[in-house]
Simulated assay, not measured.
Amino acid sequence: MTVDRILPTDEAYDLLALTTELADRELAPRAAQFEERGEFPREVLRTLGRSGLLGLPYPAEYGGAEQPYEVYLQVLEVLASRWLAVAEAVSVHTLSCYPVSAYGDEKLRAMLPDMIGGELLGAYCLSEPQGGSDAAALATRAERDGEEYVVSGTKAWITHAGAADFYNIFCRTGGPGPKGISCLLADADTPGITPQAPERTMGLRASPVAQIAFDDARVPADRLVGSEGTGFTIAMTALDSGRLGIAACAVGLAQAALDYAVAYAKERQQFGQAIIDFQGLGFLLADMATAVSAARAVTLAAARLRDAGRPYSVEAAKAKVFATDTAMRVTTDAVQVLGGAGYVADHPVERYLREAKVLQIVEGTNQIQRMVIARSLAR
């Protein structure tokens, strides 16, 4: 169904129209086949980059579009409603450009045009096998050796592992705790950086996720983003925005599941009438529609705080929790609406359900988000 949007400018309406056209033409026809094959759609990302959709929140001087986050998130939502893996890839790539844009020197920022133009794909290397939620305890080490850092350790659950052209590596250059963490920008073909075999995931099979081993990988010292010891601040600041991206992806996925369930319920006949006319099913669909609208509203409310330069970390956590929990519930109910048909791969709601689960986990589990929210209430 058509979403009635209020956007801040005429340019934003044109941008959403372009996004919808591209998503219908380039994403929707490919999604099922690529997911079945587990094939990463790298050329689709290049197409989006060349269309200006990978640099929406970034400065025009580096090739970005300087769009407010409330507009960028609605672009993500449209992409996710056609193919979640692509929307997630855009969100992760946008997150991966943030450290250089916000903290890099001019030499590093000279790379931004290729980054946000889609020629260079990024990845964000924060999580580790023994430290996912506890990012401050990461163990990957970078020792200074002249004009280079020598990086050793293992990162885990890295989206775009093996497909990315550059990696943001969060590593320990100092003592324990958050103040000992720094961020390095490394080329993916650096000797000693070895992506491992992709994980066999429940959903998002077109999105490569794997561990990355760092075996004395030498990264030039001028690839330090910010200064030594600021890596944890960079990581956490970026994740606030990344959580909004995942929330928007969840809204788009939930909208897709709702739209498919409604269309099916209008066509499916039982006892001489369309099943949408039965109150039990009609009320279920009504609750789904209400939840999707609410998830969109809370996500955009957090984005508008960000755009206004006001604190938004807690609101981003609320949006991530609510939108991803909504996506899980709505996709589950969409399968129920289709009954047995919803349990087979002939209909996309089966895939939507598998994809929704990961959104409750990535960019900080929903349990971590609830800790953030609870601590804000206790202050």
Rank of each mutant, 00 (worst) to 15 (best):
Asp105Cys: 10
Cys183Met: 12
Arg172Trp: 06
Ala102Leu: 06
Pro176His: 03
Ala135Asp: 05
Ala136His: 08
Ala206Glu: 03
Arg218Asp: 05
Glu106Met: 09
Ala110Leu: 07
Gly175His: 08
Thr154Pro: 09
Glu199Thr: 05
Val92Arg: 14
Gly146Ala: 01
Ser91Pro: 12
Glu143Gln: 15
Pro99His: 03
Gln130Leu: 15
Asp105Ala: 01
Ala197Leu: 14
Ser127Cys: 12
Glu199Trp: 09
Gln130Met: 13
Ser91Cys: 10
Leu76Ala: 03
Gln130Phe: 10
Glu148Arg: 10
Thr154Trp: 09
Ser152Pro: 11
Ala85Thr: 15
Gly177Ile: 01
Ser182Ala: 05
Gly175Pro: 01
Ala210Cys: 07
Pro208Met: 04
Asp216Thr: 15
Ile212Met: 02
Thr154Val: 15
Met115Leu: 13
Met111Asp: 13
Glu119Arg: 15
Leu184Cys: 01
Gly131Lys: 09
Ser81Asp: 06
Pro198Lys: 06
Phe214Pro: 08
Glu88Arg: 14
Thr201Lys: 11
Glu77Asp: 07
Arg109Thr: 00
Arg82Leu: 06
Asp187Asn: 11
Ala164Pro: 07
Tyr167Ala: 00
Val209Asp: 01
Ala213Arg: 04
Ile193Lys: 00
Glu119Val: 14
Pro195Gly: 00
Gly203Met: 03
Gly118His: 02
Val78Arg: 04
Ser133Val: 12
Ser81His: 05
Gly192Pro: 11
Ala123Leu: 06
Leu76Pro: 11
